[in-house]
């Protein structure tokens, strides 16, 4: 079922933009995202399959994710704890919480840029909504995160910090992060498919952001407030999850920042997805 019409056989991006921004295309973009959600048994299976394929015939399977993350946190924690002169019982849980959250946010940005490119073969064969490829990627990253989050709780409990009721707020916080992961995938995935240098750019930016975002260092180590925090979207995302994980509420500033990012991000994603969604099959 479908109805398609337009009248400009042009390949110029500007012409397509002018032409693509119609109410009809907007409705089709929204329908694509809604129908994609309805196909969750498809992308749910595909996402699981991606993870299982990676660890097929290995004895402990995806728990290698947990182990390698654990080793990373332990090594970095001991080293940087010493460098910064931090109390380990305080620093290690902080690092673990930040690190596993960073893992989720950064991989959603990185994989989001590749969402449509890696679905290339399928896009030309399968008459499914294109958003399926973004859902698949976000879901895959959630599965990985659910393996990693135990690292934090293990470390925290080792040092005698037990989960409180506030910890439950991690669930809505993650849900908000996933909603953001969707716009990242739709927007970055679309732009990356047209311009194949963008995934490379995203890669180097994310690498730098890891050091700029307070994960291995704490905000109070910084003399005064800095642009590193205020203008760093990663800071807002990481803090939104890390705060309840460690048993306190995220500040209003963080919540406001995330709300703003969510609205702006989805606005931009819908804008571009409306204009260029139908071009994706031509670009892959």
């Amino acid at each position: 079922m479908g109805d398609t019409s337009s009248t400009a056989p042009s390949v110029s991006l500007m012409a397509q933009l002018k032409h693509g921004l119609t109410r009809e295309n907007y409705q089709k973009a929204v329908a694509d995202i809604v129908d994609g959600w309805r196909r969750r048994s498809l992308w749910g299976t595909m996402g699981l399959q991606d993870i299982r394929q990676r660890y097929r015939r290995s004895v402990i399977g995806p728990f290698w994710l947990t182990i390698s993350m654990g080793v990373m946190v332990a090594a970095l924690g001991v080293l940087y704890g010493a460098i910064f002169g931090q109390e380990l019982g305080d620093y290690l849980p902080y690092l673990a919480a930040g690190f596993v959250t960073w893992g989720l946010v950064s991989s959603m940005v990185l994989d989001g840029g590749r969402a449509f490119i890696s679905g290339e073969g399928l896009i030309k064969q399968l008459n499914a909504p294109l958003s399926v490829h973004v859902y698949r990627q976000v879901w895959g990253n959630l599965i990985v995160f659910l393996h990693n989050i135990w690292i934090y709780f293990l470390v925290a409990m080792w040092f005698g910090q037990y989960p409180s009721w506030t910890t439950l707020l991690v669930v809505p916080a993650i849900a908000i992060i996933l909603v953001n992961g969707m716009w990242m995938g739709l927007l970055l995935g679309l732009l990356s498919t047209r311009f194949r240098d963008i995934p490379q750019i995203i890669g180097s930016v994310v690498q730098v952001m890891f050091f700029i975002t307070p994960i291995i260092w704490k905000t109070d180590m910084l003399p005064g407030r800095a642009l590193f925090l205020d203008l760093n979207p990663f800071y807002y995302y990481v803090q939104l999850v890390r705060a309840p994980m460690m048993g306190h509420l995220p500040s209003l500033e963080i919540i406001a920042g995330v709300v703003l990012l969510t609205v702006l991000g989805w606005g931009a994603a819908l804008f571009f997805y409306t204009a260029y969604r139908w071009r994706l099959a031509y670009w892959v």
Binding site: G2, S5, T7, Q125, Y282
Partner: peptide, 11 residues
């Protein structure tokens, strides 16, 4: 429905 034509209509 994989390719939407650049011109014309499909129903």
């Amino acid at each position: 429905g994989i390719y939407e034509p650049g011109a014309g209509s499909v129903r």
